[in-house]
Nucleic acid binder design. Structure first.
Lengths: 150, 150
DNA sequence: TCCTTTTCATTGACTAGGAAACTACTGCAG
DNA sequence: CTGCAGTAGTTTCCTAGTCAATGAAAAGGA
């Protein structure tokens, strides 16, 4: 009746609702390991990689340098990453996982696997596959590149 | 090779990536009307309704009372909503749209329509319908109720 | 070589929201 | 009718992020 559409008319609405729920669920899981979701994303980006400067991480994670800087401070305080000076350029330093940080990644990764499997288990296999395909198509066709926070 | 899964293996990852992109795009649009996405959601919730207390809004919008309280302050300052005291219970007050706020809702709603149509236009009709169905099924089967922010 | 421009990272100010403490009021038990 | 438990809303403190200003170092041009 009203000329004003409902929020629930929009795909974006449902998208966000579901996305929020997955993320929240995951946040609760990683919390048990003493890290936040952003911290997990940071560590995942570093895993299996040579230490890299904040600017590169900012780029990969789709966050600003400022955010990375503060995130790095927190992870340093937790002893999960380490800073190493760059010999060539004194402005630059590299960030890499500590032994402890490195050990934590597989644990967190399996929480991520578990969370995803659990959350989407209410879909049939066919629905789940279809959803993946559509989301990936959307991301590609829209040229989305900034890596969000899992 | 590594036993640690990639973020991109997870449906939740793509979900969030797409969801973020839709929301950002919408945020840019409503910004031209001088409101934030949360403010829009607030106003939409009030549209066509009798004024209601903050606690009800908090419930409907899936936000805490504190957040609503602050959001209401901002909207009051912008003259888009008004507070009316409840006669029966002096703790309670009701929030409703002002004439100006009311007039703004259809404008914002059409921006929401536009944003959704635009963003998902890269999907075929069939893909879009399928996506809607799957998202709604997911929300229902998971019992999601908290209304996010469009 | 020296000066200017650019780049890298950090910092500070600000926005947004959640959790919990706090305030004011209601309403019920005695 | 008094006092106390519960309820509604606000406030404070915290986390997290952006943006813009800043400082330090490198690079490039005259």
């Amino acid at each position: 009746m009203t000329p004003v559409s409902e929020s629930t008319d929009h795909t974006g609405f449902w998208m966000r609702m579901v996305s929020n729920a997955v993320s929240q669920s995951f946040a609760r899981k990683v919390e048990t390991e003493g890290v936040t979701v952003a911290e997990w994303a940071f560590m995942r980006a570093l895993y299996d990689m040579d230490p890299m400067p904040p600017s590169v991480l900012a780029n990969r994670m789709g966050m600003t340098k400022g955010a990375i800087s503060k995130l790095a401070d927190r992870l340093l305080a937790k002893g999960l990453i380490a800073r190493t000076e760059s010999a060539a350029d004194k402005r630059v330093h590299n960030l890499g996982l500590t032994r402890e940080g490195n050990a934590k990644v597989p644990v967190l990764a399996s929480l991520a696997d578990e969370n995803d499997a659990e959350f989407f288990s209410v879909l049939t296999k066919e629905e789940h596959e279809r959803l993946d395909l559509i989301l990936k198509a959307l991301a590609e066709r829209r040229g989305l590149k900034t890596t969000p926070v899992d």
